[in-house]
């Protein structure tokens, strides 16, 4: 039988149990990173998802070249990843509640935000306003996509502006912070939500532990940036286990209906 090792406690988990437990370690409750397709499957009601903005894809408009060209990196990543970019957006139902749903994928260039992520969030925001349905985004990202230069920084402005219009229309906006969420995504659309939910132990920060270590020349405390520390500091509303997320979201969506 196929077995997986928990990334946190190193215990072996049978594949079947691992999947049934939504890729959460049954021994230590460590929430393993999952891709957007799996996340969609465990979040939305079956067959309820219609993808939006499928026709949009990233392009190497700066001819950015480090040790490889951005164009080449995109090609390679598309072959490996389950998606065409770092987010999928669409409309879906969560326990019968209509939502405009966005799910990021860390497997696609570290969930980095470039023009496509920005545009898809704009499309999703407009859809949410047009249909007057709540906006829910699952976040995971290392930050802005450097290969798009300052244009990637501008996606922070673009997403905050688009979602600002959702909020002005008095439409609920909920984010779910999954491991890890940092940099430009943290400092833009992830943190302007009406409700911020985090998965247990998820890293959620602006500057990551490595950057902090460079500044203070020592290791930050082990709980630095963790969901639990963020809860204590008042930066998130609640921490919810993966298995309870769907129910929690559905309940919040019902509460917002008044």
């Amino acid at each position: 039988m196929e077995k997986n090792k928990c990334k946190n406690c190193n215990k072996e988990i049978e594949n079947e149990i691992f999947v049934l437990n939504l890729w959460v370690c049954p021994y230590c409750n460590y929430h393993h990173t999952i891709d957007a397709r799996d996340r969609l499957q465990i979040t939305a009601d079956s067959n309820s998802f219609n993808e939006l903005g499928k026709n949009i894809s990233s392009v190497d408009f700066l001819n950015f070249y480090d040790i490889k060209s951005y164009g080449e990196r995109l090609k390679e990543t598309r072959l490996k990843a389950s998606l065409d970019d770092a987010i999928i957006v669409g409309d879906a139902q969560i326990e019968g509640n209509d939502v405009a749903l966005g799910i990021m994928d860390f497997g696609f260039m570290g969930g980095s935000m470039g023009s496509v992520v920005g545009e898809k969030i704009k499309i999703l925001s407009n859809y949410s306003i047009g249909k007057n349905i709540p906006l829910v985004i699952f976040c995971t990202s290392g930050g802005a996509r450097m290969q798009e230069g300052t244009i990637s920084l501008m996606q922070m402005a673009k997403t905050v502006s688009s979602i600002g219009r959702v909020k002005e229309n008095r439409i609920p906006y909920i984010t779910v912070i999954t491991n890890p969420t940092s940099g430009g995504v943290s400092a833009s659309f992830a943190t302007i939500a009406d409700i911020i939910i985090a998965e247990p132990h998820a890293l959620f920060c602006f500057a990551g532990p490595r950057v902090i270590k460079q500044t203070i020349k020592k290791n930050p405390p082990p709980d630095f940036g963790s969901a639990e520390r963020n809860l204590k500091n008042g930066q998130v509303d609640m921490i919810v286990n993966r298995g309870d997320l769907k129910d929690t979201l559905a309940n919040l969506l019902r509460l917002f209906r008044g």
Binding site: S182, S188, F189, T191, A207, I212, T215, N233
Partner: peptide
């Protein structure tokens, strides 16, 4: 980039 700044909600303050 500092622990206190992060604890005080740097990301949210910028957003």
């Amino acid at each position: 980039p500092a622990i206190e700044a992060e604890d005080d909600g740097q990301a949210g303050a910028i957003a």
